Amino acid sequence: MIDPSEGPVALTRQLCDIPSVSGDERAIADAVERLLAERAPHLSVHRDGDTIVARTELGRARRVAIAGHLDTVPINDNLPVRDIVDDVSGEAMIWGRGTVDMKAGVAVQLALAVELAEPAVDVTWIWYDHEEVSSALSGLGRAMRNAPELFEADFAILGEPTNGRIEGGCNGTLRARVHYAGKRAHSARAWMGVNAIHRAGAALSKLAAFEPARIVVDGLEYREGLNAVRIDGGVAGNVIPDDCSIEVNYRFAPSRTPEEAADVVRVFFDDADSVEIVDSAAGARPGLDAPLAQGFAAAVGGDPTAKLGWTDVSRFSALGIPAVNFGPGDPLLAHADDERVPVAQIDAGYAGLRAWLERGA
């Protein structure tokens, strides 16, 4: 059972202590659905697998979608959560898996969903499964395909950890497999073959020397990255390898399309025998030129920055909905075994989002 009556900080602890590793979100989704049925009669609730969409239907002129994922990466002796005091800052914190990514953000959203029966804008609250795994499994993507009408909105907020500041848009991401061919031979007579691993060496040196581009998009600076993340090759300890493949990950600015990003990778590896695009996902422009985004930025304060990773704001952007990331927690601690979120950031995020929703966004 979860109970938001003691506020979003207590609710964060409760949510984190429900194990919800990707693929095992049923228990937490059941708890969220049960809470909404018992405490939020002002919301129409829809469920798609372990994704829950709860909407106000007040006939307001504008609608905001506010979303967060329910799953976490695997637990590593870091549940149940516990309260700690940071050794350096002296801040009160909640330590444990999911505190940063992103149960604190979910707690803020869930508390407000229950409490705000008549926000000044209509709100679509979304909690979804399978964010921490392949994008093909995304509960948000699945629900958007199954019932796109539930996701119509003028602006969207994703509660990913941002240290309580707005991060606009997100980088795109692409994975490619770069192949180098050779010719097998006995290693005692290496001159009779062509070593595919050696052929790939020049590409690895080129990658090591790569300087990431910094690209300004709508006033925010995005930093790109191109890195080898896996390498495969070799037949046996006495055989010259005839094949070597390097898997690379390209993080590209949202000013590029996935097709343009693929062209960048192909040109970079122009000496390869083939470049196979394994998967890709578009980025999202900052979205801060939308009137609702400007009002939100003014309400929560601080200077917006670029989201350098990929997040599900991209899915909203693909629907033509401007979207930003905003949530408690340091994104550098996401997935770390010592995840910990400042209590003050949870309270501040809750207060800022509540005030904005109550006064007319």
Rank of each mutant, 00 (worst) to 15 (best):
V32R: 09
A299G: 04
L226F: 10
R63I: 06
G233A: 02
D289L: 13
A262H: 15
V123W: 14
L36Q: 15
E149L: 02
M144S: 03
P286L: 12
E160C: 06
E221I: 02
D24G: 04
V108H: 13
I94W: 10
D129P: 12
R26W: 04
N249F: 01
N238D: 08
D263V: 14
H186W: 01
A200F: 05
P254V: 06
A202N: 02
R63D: 03
W310M: 11
V64T: 12
P148D: 04
G219R: 05
D271K: 15
H335W: 03
G105L: 04
L220D: 00
V324I: 15
A29I: 01
V300R: 13
D218K: 03
F269P: 11
S138I: 03
R60Y: 07
R47P: 08
G301D: 09
P241C: 15
V300N: 13
G302N: 11
A10N: 09
A348N: 05
R97I: 06
D338L: 04
P304G: 14
K183I: 08
S22R: 09
P4L: 15
V264H: 15
V32S: 10
V275D: 02
V45T: 15
A213F: 05
G287M: 05
P254Y: 09
W191S: 09
C170W: 07
S22N: 01
R142L: 00
G302H: 10
G68E: 05
R199G: 12
A27H: 07
E221V: 13
R97V: 10
E149I: 00
I52K: 12
V88T: 14
L357M: 09
S280G: 07
T305H: 06
I215L: 13
A200G: 06
G302F: 10
S187L: 04
T162F: 14
L11K: 13
P331E: 08
V324Q: 15
R145N: 04
V265R: 13
S134M: 05
V278N: 06
D50H: 14
A136K: 09
A361H: 01
A213N: 14
V100Q: 03
P8Y: 04
E6R: 15
G182S: 02
A209F: 09
D71E: 07
G172V: 10
N325L: 06
A355N: 07
L116G: 12
G301Y: 08
C16K: 05
R230K: 07
V239Y: 05
A281H: 06
A200H: 03
D83Y: 09
G168C: 11
M144G: 02
G139R: 04
G352C: 01
E211N: 05
A65K: 01
V278P: 11
M1W: 06
I2P: 11
L288E: 11
Q294E: 04
R175V: 05
Q294Y: 00
L150Q: 05
A92S: 11
A290S: 11
A200E: 02
H42L: 09
R62M: 13
P212M: 00
C16N: 11
D218W: 00
P80I: 12
M102S: 07
S255G: 13
V123T: 12
M144D: 03
E259I: 03
V194K: 06
H42T: 11
T173Y: 07
A10I: 01
V217G: 06
I240H: 10
G225V: 02
G327E: 09
D77V: 02
G327H: 07
D86S: 02
E149Y: 01
S135E: 09
S20C: 15
G352W: 00
A185G: 03
F155S: 07
E259F: 01
